[in-house]
Lab assay of single mutants.
Amino acid sequence: MPVRRGHVAPQNTFLDTIIRKFEGQSRKFIIANARVENCAVIYCNDGFCELCGYSRAEVMQRPCTCDFLHGPRTQRRAAAQIAQALLGAEERKVEIAFYRKDGSCFLCLVDVVPVKNEDGAVIMFILNFEVVMEKDMVGSPAHDTNHRGPPTSWLAPGRAKTFRLKLPALLALTARESSVRSGGAGGAGAPGAVVVDVDLTPAAPSSESLALDEVTAMDNHVAGLGPAEERRALVGPGSPPRSAPGQLPSPRAHSLNPDASGSSCSLARTRSRESCASVRRASSADDIEAMRAGVLPPPPRHASTGAMHPLRSGLLNSTSDSDLVRYRTISKIPQITLNFVDLKGDPFLASPTSDREIIAPKIKERTHNVTEKVTQVLSLGADVLPEYKLQAPRIHRWTILHYSPFKAVWDWLILLLVIYTAVFTPYSAAFLLKETEEGPPATECGYACQPLAVVDLIVDIMFIVDILINFRTTYVNANEEVVSHPGRIAVHYFKGWFLIDMVAAIPFDLLI
């Protein structure tokens, strides 16, 4: 008679799926529990143990900040960024110097990925580790590398530091407007667009060049630039800015003055950032001319202004700041037409079709709590990747769950009947059967004279019903998954307890 339990259901295979997918890609990662103190490590794979030199037993239950890997060259700011990422709910990448158990130093890129439950609360953290440099290539500990984003994938490793954006290309926007319009339909740009040429040739750093990471940081200074100062900065030398009595002219307006920039070969870094931020506020060169004239017309309804409409929906549905990093990277690809469009465009503009998908598509409701890094690593669709929660398995109709209350009560009843059979069957065979043979035949009273025979008949009927119930009862397979398919249940029961239950259900007393 089957006594099969499996009270692990309803099970959740999400954690096993993450481990299996990460292991298949030869990654070095740990999984931490966000619900406990210090976000203790609950799993670390073999790749991480080989990377740091510690065994799994030495890593388990330690804080996922990996303070046991810190050393003299470990930056405090990087460690603080990892700790801050564990307090938030967004994906974050941090470069930090770690030390192995043998004392060797290596520069590592740590990717902190939160995993949320159905309520939107962070319950786990996945920390992925990628070695960037070994100890002989690690720089000085005073050099802070965590304020910069990861290198873009479309640049060669040897040319990542030679990417320079020439400031004269930004200063000569109005001069290039006529050349853009003359391109017409034969050019790649839309009317009114501004073409910015980027020099990728390796050259020595000069005062006129600005690194790509500095251009990325310009967006942080746009908020500090007032509207009046932006307007004066875009007017140009024809209309000098008016300053109040006793007030000095704005240095932001002076930063885009061609006369002032041409007199000296070098520009201050602050002026460069502010000038680029001011130019980015204009949607095209037409807006710059309109600002000089004193009238700013409404933005025209053409394809170039609607190019950012799908980007707005993608940004609203993005799951991490990696989408913004990807957008900034692609927006700086050289030799393309940049349409400086305000994100607050007309909502009635139709979304044009684009061959290049900048932001990841909208994630469906079932995966809105899973970050983009987890979705990318697992390579699963929205119909396959579940949320991290207890999910009731989908069972067929008329199927009994093996952990249901009805099955528990039924098993206790069958257990009592088995005990009765084990006690009274030998007793009936030894004593009652002998008395029946010696006594007179009682054929007239039937079952009324033999109450134990009636009980034995009921017990046999219950055993037959138990066999039928076992054909529709779920079970737990070797992978700790609840199986509810009727065919698989029948095959599993035939290979197991079916023969024993059938022999126990045969009414031998009635056959004798």
Rank of each mutant, 00 (worst) to 15 (best):
P2E: 04
V3G: 12
R4S: 14
R4I: 14
R5Q: 08
R5M: 08
G6N: 15
G6S: 07
P10R: 11
Q11I: 09
Q11V: 13
T13G: 13
F14R: 11
F14A: 11
D16Q: 14
T17Q: 08
I18W: 10
I19E: 01
R20F: 05
F22S: 13
G24P: 03
G24L: 08
Q25R: 11
F29D: 01
I30F: 01
A32F: 01
N33E: 10
A34I: 03
V36M: 15
N38I: 01
C39H: 14
I42M: 07
Y43W: 05
C44M: 01
D46L: 05
C49D: 01
E50F: 05
L51Q: 01
G53M: 06
G53E: 01
G53K: 05
G53C: 01
Y54H: 01
Y54A: 01
S55T: 07
S55C: 09
E58N: 01
E58H: 05
M60P: 01
R62T: 13
P63L: 01
P63R: 08
P63M: 04
T65R: 06
C66L: 14
C66A: 03
C66G: 01
F68S: 01
F68N: 01
G71E: 01
P72G: 01
P72I: 01
R73A: 12
R73P: 01
T74I: 01
Q75T: 12
R77V: 15
A78S: 15
A80S: 13
Q81F: 10
Q81I: 09
A83N: 11
Q84E: 15
A85T: 12
A85W: 01
L87T: 08
L87I: 08
G88F: 03
A89L: 08
E91T: 07
E91L: 13
V94C: 14
V94Y: 01
E95I: 04
I96W: 01
F98T: 01
F98V: 01
Y99F: 01
R100E: 01
R100Y: 01
D102T: 05
D102M: 01
D102Q: 05
F106P: 01
F106K: 01
F106W: 04
L107T: 10
C108T: 11
C108K: 01
L109A: 07
V110G: 01
V110S: 01
V115K: 06
V115D: 01
N117W: 06
E118W: 15
E118R: 06
D119P: 06
D119H: 08
D119V: 09
G120F: 07
G120E: 15
V122A: 14
V122K: 15
F125G: 11
F125H: 06
L127W: 01
L127R: 01
L127N: 01
N128H: 09
F129K: 01
E130R: 06
E130I: 05
V131H: 13
V131A: 15
M133I: 12
M133E: 13
E134L: 06
G139Q: 15
S140G: 08
A142E: 14
H143W: 14
D144R: 06
D144I: 12
R148F: 06
R148A: 08
R148M: 11
R148H: 05
G149L: 11
P151M: 10
P151C: 11
S153C: 07
S153N: 08
L155C: 11
L155M: 06
P157F: 15
P157A: 13
G158D: 05
R159L: 14
R159C: 08
K161A: 06
F163K: 15
F163Y: 07
F163A: 15
F163M: 15
F163G: 14
R164C: 06
R164F: 09
L165R: 09
L165P: 14
L165I: 06
K166D: 08
L167P: 15
P168G: 14
P168T: 06
P168A: 07
A169D: 06
A169E: 09
A169W: 15
L171K: 15
A172E: 12
A172P: 14
L173F: 14
A175H: 05
R176Y: 03
S179L: 06
S179K: 15
S182T: 10
S182D: 05
S182A: 06
S182V: 06
S182H: 12
G184Y: 07
G189S: 05
A190F: 03
A190I: 06
G192E: 06
V194Y: 07
V194Q: 01
V195S: 05
V195Q: 01
V196L: 09
V196A: 04
V198Y: 05
V198F: 06
T201K: 15
P202K: 07
A204W: 11
P205G: 14
P205D: 12
L212W: 09
L212S: 05
E214G: 06
V215M: 06
V215L: 08
V215K: 08
T216K: 07
M218N: 06
D219L: 04
N220D: 07
V222G: 08
V222I: 11
V222S: 13
G226A: 15
P227R: 05
A228R: 09
P240W: 15
R242H: 10
P249M: 11
S250D: 09
S250E: 05
S250Y: 05
S250P: 15
P251D: 13
P251N: 04
P251I: 05
R252F: 09
H254M: 13
H254Q: 13
S255W: 04
L256Y: 06
N257R: 06
D259C: 11
A260K: 07
S263V: 08
C265V: 12
S266R: 07
S266P: 05
L267A: 08
A268T: 11
R271Q: 13
R271K: 09
R273D: 14
R273H: 09
S275E: 12
C276V: 09
A277K: 14
A277N: 13
R280Q: 14
A282R: 11
A282G: 10
S283C: 07
S283I: 05
S284P: 09
D286S: 09
D286T: 06
E289H: 04
R292M: 15
R292Y: 14
A293W: 13
A293M: 15
G294M: 04
V295F: 14
V295Y: 15
P299N: 08
R301H: 08
A303D: 05
G306I: 12
A307R: 11
M308F: 07
H309W: 12
H309Y: 14
H309I: 09
L311Q: 05
S313K: 11
L315T: 12
L316K: 04
L316S: 05
T319G: 08
D321P: 10
D321Q: 11
L324I: 14
L324P: 12
V325I: 14
T329Q: 15
K332I: 01
K332E: 14
I333C: 15
I333W: 07
P334T: 01
P334S: 09
Q335I: 01
I336N: 07
I336G: 15
T337D: 01
V341H: 11
L343K: 05
K344A: 04
K344V: 10
G345M: 14
G345C: 05
G345Y: 06
F348D: 12
L349N: 14
S351A: 08
S351H: 15
T353W: 05
S354V: 12
S354D: 10
D355E: 10
D355N: 12
R356I: 15
I358Y: 11
K362M: 08
K362S: 08
K362G: 06
K362W: 08
I363G: 05
I363E: 12
K364A: 12
K364V: 13
E365D: 13
E365S: 07
R366D: 04
N369T: 12
E372Q: 12
E372D: 04
E372P: 05
K373T: 13
K373Q: 10
T375K: 09
Q376T: 04
S379V: 03
L380A: 03
L380V: 03
A382M: 03
A382G: 11
V384M: 11
L385D: 04
